[in-house]
Every structure is written in C-alpha cells, then in structure tokens.
Design a protein around this nucleic acid. Structure first.
Length: 273
DNA sequence: CGGACAACCTGGCGGC
DNA sequence: TGCCGCCAGGTTGTCC
C-alpha cells in the first residue's frame, strides 16, 4: 500500500525512535523476508551497529548504519515500527522480522502478505541504483521530466508506475496526479501536449505533497500495531471513487483496468481524445 | 521498447 | 454461517 507519502510518513515517525540506538539482535520467522544477504550474514553484520540516520529513497526506508545500509521495502502490506520488547507479540500476528535495540525496544517489521523485504548492503546503489529521480526533490525539474519522456511511447499511467521513470508513485497517486492534470490514464505519453506535460509535472508533486501533508493514506504504520489512521484517503479525487460524483464536475467516476491495475478517472474531466 | 501475465502471499469482502 | 471467487496501495522476470 505504501507509496511515497506513506513511506515518508513512516520514516518521519520512526526516525526519532531509532537514531543513535544500537542493534543488538535479529530475529525472523520467515527468512524469505530477508532479501540480501543470507540470514546468517545479515545477522552477523547488523548486530552491534549504531543507527546514524533514517531516510527514504523512493519507497525504500533507508536505515543508515555505521557500516552499511539497512533497507526495508513495505510492498503491499508491510508495517515498520518501534515498540518496547514487552509489547505483546500476539497483538500483531504478522511480525516476521525483529531487530532488538540497546534500549530494550524492538524495531518490528510486520507484513501479512509477506511481499515486503529487508536488505543489508554497504552499496546503496546495488539496491536503489536503477530508480528514477525523486519527484519532490529540487533537481526533478520540468525539463528533467520532459527529457525522460523523450523517445518514450507508453500508456501514461504505466509510465507513472514505472519506478525507473520517476520513483515513488504508486497506483493511488498515479490516479490522483492524472485526475488533477485532466489527463486520461490511457493516453500515450508521446501524445501529451506541452501544457499537459507541464500540468502533469505539477500535479505529480502536488498529489504527493498533499499525501504527505495528510500523513499518508489509511494508516500511520509507524504507530505501533494498532495504528492510527492517516486521512489522506479522505482527500482523494479519483482513487476508490468509482460510481461517485466527480468532485469537480459531478459526473460519475469510472473504473477501468490499466497496466493490470485498477484505475479511477472522470470520463468528463479526463477525456480520451 | 512496450504490453501482457505469472509469481510472490494472505486477508477481507461481496455474493450466494 | 460457510464457502468461493475476486480484489488489493508493489516489483520482478519472462515471453511475444
């Protein structure tokens, strides 16, 4: 579920709970959650390392250690939070990886669908090297986006979901950005007029920024197992609104399948052309 | 290069 | 209530 705004929200939540603390142990009941290196090597290398910083690259949570990077990708159902060791484990039956901290707390990775992964590497690029630019960074300019569009001819929604094109957009915010830009999700990227590209550039950033401002959709994953709700979903224009009136023109919102993903749009505001 | 699809997994929900 | 099929916010690899 987590896209850029949700991951950013998690990072902001756990950062003060982690920086300066030292990892003292590691546990898992589902070794497939460990992407790289092997479980044995992971444990041997991670124990004893102090956490220097916590940040985000695309949808990856980056926990910077003294000697390596501990990365977590939440994929569809992952959660990551810090809690006292004494917190009952059965309160969250989907915890599959735990890192003990020197404060008597644990960093817990919970993931009901088991798609999420943790990584440990001295070389960040080995994991994140192929990702496209960060859409909210200053160096992602309109010119950069135009340059990356050059020579591409792909259904625009599929392109937005392509993490090597721009990193961090997922199914929700792709729909939101396209709605705000009044662009039909099936438009081919090379059919977009200059002003449409400019609009899309702005709405990508606006949709993601608004998502962060509302602390992500559905849940603040970092808040323990019970998880309070974020309220980003209350502000969606497109996602999950099929059959409901468009917030701009009142037309019933449509839902179709694009790039094998549920896709929501307004047939009036976002004409196919 | 682009598009379709399977795979990785489990839980929730609507329908009957 | 019980069972079944379908859906799900992500990514990667394969095949055409």
């Amino acid at each position: 579920m987590p896209e850029l705004p949700e991951v950013e929200t998690v990072v902001r939540g756990i950062r003060p709970d982690l920086v300066g603390k030292t990892i003292t142990s590691m546990w898992t009941d589902w070794p497939n959650s460990i992407s790289t290196p092997t479980l044995e090597a992971f444990e041997a290398q991670v124990v004893g390392q102090q956490i220097q910083a916590v940040w985000r690259r695309a949808k990856y949570i980056v926990i910077e250690l003294a000697d390596a990077y501990l990365l977590v990708h939440l994929k569809m159902t992952g959660r990551l939070y810090v809690t006292p060791v004494t917190t009952q484990h059965d309160a969250d039956r989907w915890v599959h990886v735990k890192f003990g901290l020197d404060t008597g707390e644990e960093l817990r990775f919970s993931d009901s669908r088991k798609f999420g992964r943790v990584y440990l590497t001295p070389d960040l690029d080995a994991i994140t090297g192929s990702l496209g630019p960060e859409p909210l960074e200053d160096d992602f300019t309109l010119d950069v986006m135009k340059a990356r569009l050059a020579g591409r001819s792909k259904v625009i929604k599929a392109l937005l979901l392509d993490q090597t094109f721009v990193a961090g957009i997922g199914n929700i915010y792709a729909d939101e950005a396209l709605f705000r830009a009044k662009i039909h999700p099936l438009r081919k990227s090379d059919s977009l007029r200059d002003e449409e590209i400019s609009r899309l550039y702005e709405t990508i950033r606006a949709a993601l920024s608004d998502g962060i401002e509302h602390e992500g959709a559905s849940i603040n994953w970092y808040r323990k197992a019970d998880g309070n709700k974020g309220n980003s979903q209350d502000h969606f224009y497109a996602y999950g609104r099929e059959g409901q009136p468009c917030k701009v023109c009142g037309t019933a919102m449509s839902k179709i399948r694009v790039a094998q993903r549920g896709t929501h749009y307004c047939p009036t505001c976002q004409p196919r052309e």
